[in-house]
Amino acid sequence: MAAAAAAGAGPEMVRGQVFDVGPRYTNLSYIGEGAYGMVCSAYDNVNKVRVAIKKISPFEHQTYCQRTLREIKILLRFRHENIIGINDIIRAPTIEQMKDVYIVQDLMETDLYKLLKTQHLSNDHICYFLYQILRGLKYIHSANVLHRDLKPSNLLLNTTCDLKICDFGLARVADPDHDHTGFLTEYVATRWYRAPEIMLNSKGYTKSIDIWSVGCILAEMLSNRPIFPGKHYLDQLNHILGILGSPSQEDLNCIINLKARNYLLSLPHKNKVPWNRLFPNADSKALDLLDKMLTFNPHKRIEVEQALAHPYLEQYYDPSDEPIAEAPFKFDMELDDLPKEKLKELIFEETARFQPGYRS
C-alpha cells in the first residue's frame, strides 16, 4: 500500500510507478496490472468513496492506442447498470505532455475469474450472474457493438453480487458484411471463450460470437473449470467437437473457408456428449439454455433477447427493466489503419471533457 500523499506533496508512487492523480484522489492501494497499465484503488475526496484507477501508458504502440481509444469512446457513450462506466479521466493539459491516461471507475471487490478459483456457486448465484451478463449484453448488442472478449476476468463483482462487464478494448461495431482481413492475426481474445466460426472463417462476425462466450462462462460457473481449455488453435476446435459432436452437413455448409471445411470433413465422426453427463448436478433449465448458447452453427445460436426470456431466468426476466441503447454506435473511421500519432490526438480530444474549465 502506498503511503497517503500529504496535501501538495506531488504524485504518489505505487510499486515504483508514478500515479499522478492528486489532489482529488489519494490513499492509493495496488490492485493489479494488465498488459499496459496498473490498477489501484484510491480515495475520492470529492465523492467520499474509494474508486478504481487504471493507469494506461499506450502511446508507444499502435495496438494499445487503438484499444484505449475504443474503450474510452464506447464506455463514455454507454450507460447501463451492468456495464462499468467511466467516472473521470485524468491526463496532462497538453498533448505533448500526455504520456499516461488515468481512467477512474467504480471500485468492484472482485471478478468472476477470482471468485470461481475459490468458491463453488449455488444455482441461485449462477442464475443471477447469468441474468446480469445477458442484461448488459442486450444493451451492448442493441448499440450494434460486439464485445468480443467476454470471459470471467472481464466480469466485475461486488459483495452485493452486482455484476458489471468491463474491458471493451477489443470491441467492434457489428459488421457481418465487412471482410476484416487479418482478423485472426489481430484477434487476441482469450482462445477458450472463442466461437468456432472465428477459427473457421475470417469473413465478418456477428453478435452470436458473444453468446458463445457467455455459454462458455455459464459452463464454467457450473463446474469451476473452463469447458474448452484448448492449448492452441486446432486443439481448441477438437475440444469443442469432442463435446458438441461432429457438425451436420448443414452446419458445414455455413463454413465459407474450404480449407477449414475440408479439415472438419477429414475428422472421424464424434457423438455429442449429453450435458447432464458433463454437469450431473446442474439445473435442467440451465443445461437447456447452455445447449442453445453453445450451438456450433452461429445462425442457430440463441440471441440475447431470447436467452433473457428463457425459463431458467424467469424469476428475473423483465423486458421493461432491460434497457437498450438510445442509438446504434458508430465509429467515424476504422481505427485499425491509423498511425499511433493520430490515435493519440483522438484520445486527447475524447478525454477533453474531463479537463478543468472544459467548454463543449
Score class of each variant (00 low, 15 high):
residue 185 T to S: 00
residue 23 P to A: 12
residue 89 I to S: 13
residue 55 K to Q: 06
residue 183 F to L: 01
residue 182 G to W: 00
residue 213 S to I: 02
residue 47 N to S: 04
residue 122 S to D: 13
residue 122 S to E: 08
residue 233 Y to L: 01
residue 90 I to D: 14
residue 260 A to S: 01
residue 136 G to I: 07
residue 106 D to C: 15
residue 138 K to C: 11
residue 121 L to N: 09
residue 245 G to M: 04
residue 245 G to D: 02
residue 104 V to A: 10
residue 210 D to V: 00
residue 272 K to N: 00
residue 88 D to M: 15
residue 27 N to E: 13
residue 202 S to C: 01
residue 151 K to E: 02
residue 211 I to N: 00
residue 107 L to V: 11
residue 119 Q to P: 09
residue 159 T to N: 02
residue 53 I to F: 02
residue 72 I to G: 10
residue 232 H to T: 09
residue 133 I to R: 03
residue 136 G to K: 04
residue 161 C to Y: 01
residue 271 N to S: 10
residue 306 Q to R: 05
residue 356 P to V: 15
residue 183 F to H: 10
residue 171 A to G: 07
residue 324 I to E: 13
residue 168 F to N: 07
residue 255 I to Q: 07
residue 346 L to V: 10
residue 262 N to A: 09
residue 120 H to G: 12
residue 357 G to T: 15
residue 189 A to T: 01
residue 224 N to K: 02
residue 257 N to K: 02
residue 354 F to C: 11
residue 11 P to L: 01
residue 132 Q to V: 07
residue 121 L to P: 08
residue 181 T to D: 10
residue 216 C to F: 01
residue 117 K to H: 11
residue 316 Y to R: 15
residue 217 I to A: 07
residue 53 I to R: 05
residue 19 F to A: 04
residue 108 M to Y: 10
residue 255 I to C: 06
residue 262 N to D: 06
residue 148 R to I: 02
residue 102 Y to N: 00
residue 343 L to I: 12
residue 227 I to P: 10
residue 212 W to V: 01
residue 339 P to L: 03
residue 332 D to S: 12
residue 117 K to S: 13
residue 153 S to A: 11
residue 82 N to K: 05
residue 258 L to N: 09
residue 72 I to A: 13
residue 130 L to F: 10
residue 140 I to H: 05
residue 290 L to S: 04
residue 193 Y to G: 01
residue 40 C to Q: 08
residue 235 D to I: 04
residue 243 I to T: 11
residue 348 F to S: 07
residue 259 K to G: 08
residue 325 A to F: 15
residue 321 D to H: 14
residue 16 G to M: 13
residue 91 R to G: 14
residue 108 M to S: 12
residue 145 V to K: 05
residue 133 I to V: 09
residue 292 K to I: 07
residue 301 R to V: 04
residue 189 A to S: 01
residue 3 A to R: 03
residue 205 Y to L: 02
residue 318 D to F: 14
residue 304 V to S: 11
residue 104 V to C: 14
residue 279 F to A: 15
residue 110 T to R: 09
residue 239 H to P: 02
residue 43 Y to D: 11
residue 254 C to T: 10
residue 199 M to V: 10
residue 147 H to A: 05
residue 249 Q to P: 08
residue 6 A to D: 05
residue 153 S to Y: 04
residue 68 T to G: 14
residue 187 Y to H: 05
residue 236 Q to E: 06
residue 254 C to P: 06
residue 87 N to C: 15
residue 208 S to M: 10
residue 126 I to Y: 08
residue 217 I to F: 00
residue 45 N to W: 13
residue 341 E to W: 15
residue 116 L to N: 10
residue 287 L to F: 09
residue 48 K to V: 11
residue 340 K to Y: 08
residue 353 R to C: 12
residue 141 H to K: 08
residue 346 L to I: 11
residue 12 E to Y: 09
residue 255 I to W: 08
residue 352 A to D: 06
residue 19 F to K: 02
residue 243 I to G: 07
residue 277 R to A: 10
residue 218 L to Y: 09
residue 264 L to P: 01
residue 265 L to W: 14
residue 220 E to V: 01
residue 56 I to A: 09
residue 333 M to N: 10
residue 191 R to Q: 00
residue 32 G to E: 10
residue 221 M to I: 00
residue 122 S to Y: 09
residue 2 A to Q: 15
residue 318 D to G: 11
residue 182 G to A: 05
residue 314 E to V: 03
residue 202 S to M: 02
residue 163 L to M: 06
residue 159 T to L: 05
residue 253 N to W: 09
residue 192 W to N: 03
residue 325 A to P: 14
residue 311 P to S: 02
residue 185 T to W: 03
residue 196 P to M: 01
residue 327 A to N: 15
residue 88 D to Q: 11
residue 316 Y to I: 15
residue 139 Y to C: 03
residue 122 S to L: 08
residue 140 I to L: 02
residue 201 N to Q: 10
residue 237 L to I: 10
residue 27 N to P: 10
